[in-house]
């Protein structure tokens, strides 16, 4: 599904080039649940943004669903993004002025999904995440965990093939974090490809593979041992 070949990302200032990512080679197959780890400033978010087609690499090839997206124009990239990718943020990034319902509905509006179907899709997600009662509340009236639940609901309501999550539990208590992780696991089991960034080893265990990023380079890329005991929640 995702194939990165020698991806570089750098920022140029007057005389110097600062590399954020350097020579990234990474292949992620459909249905994988990959965790990217690494120290702060290693380039994890940058990598995730490139994969999510929000940012462009400075050099290298990126094949997304077999398509060479590094050749694509902005418009076509955002079309791909819109239809296949969902994003979850550490700071939730819900729209303050919109209710829970409206927040979840927004990506469907942009995808051009018509009224009845849209309602059904939102209703289904609300039901699944057990937040029907909260649908008319504004984000500020929710706890952090509830907000992130809405964030995930909004990311997956359009049934994307790929879910990207940048430290989704970073602002949450571990209990709230577990709920999100369980959810990810469930979604992955249903076939959704997930790439998450996290600092927590515990959370990493929910995935099937861990990529270590240090100074913009991949230090290691290992499968999570299935035998490893999972923290029971």
């Amino acid at each position: 599904m995702i194939q990165l070949n020698n991806i570089d990302k750098y920022y140029s200032s007057k005389f110097t080039r600062t590399f954020v990512l350097k020579g990234i080679k990474l292949e992620i197959k459909s249905g994988e649940f990959v965790t990217i780890m690494g120290p702060s400033g290693a380039g994890k978010s940058t990598l995730l943004n490139i994969i999510g087609l929000l940012d462009q690499p400075s050099a290298g090839e990126y094949l997304f669903m077999e398509e060479p997206v590094h050749h694509f124009k902005e418009r076509k990239r955002s079309e791909l993004h819109k239809h296949h990718i969902g994003f979850v943020f550490q700071a939730y990034h819900l729209i303050d002025e919109l209710t829970v319902y409206e927040n979840i509905e927004t990506p469907l509006l942009y995808k051009g999904i018509k009224g009845k179907q849209r309602k059904a899709m939102v209703a289904e997600i609300l039901d699944r995440f057990n937040i029907v009662a909260k649908k008319d509340l504004f984000p500020e009236q929710l706890s952090g965990g509830q907000q992130q639940l809405v964030g995930v609901a909004r990311a997956i309501v359009g049934q994307p093939k790929l879910l990207l999550a940048d430290e989704p539990t970073g602002n949450l208590h571990s209990k709230q974090g577990q709920v999100i992780m369980e959810l990810f696991k469930e979604l992955n089991a249903e076939g959704m490809t997930i790439i998450q960034v996290t600092h927590s080893d515990e959370n990493a265990q929910y995935g099937s593979r861990i990529v270590q990023l240090v100074d913009g380079m991949i230090r290691s890329d290992q499968a999570v041992l299935p035998a490893h005991p999972k923290h029971e929640g």
């Binding site: 955002s78 927004t106 509006l109």
Partner: peptide
């Protein structure tokens, strides 16, 4: 501006 950023991530086009 931040809200517009979110909307873009959610798939908003220039028209939107």
């Amino acid at each position: 501006s931040k809200e517009m950023g979110i909307r873009k991530v959610l798939g908003a086009s220039s028209g939107n």
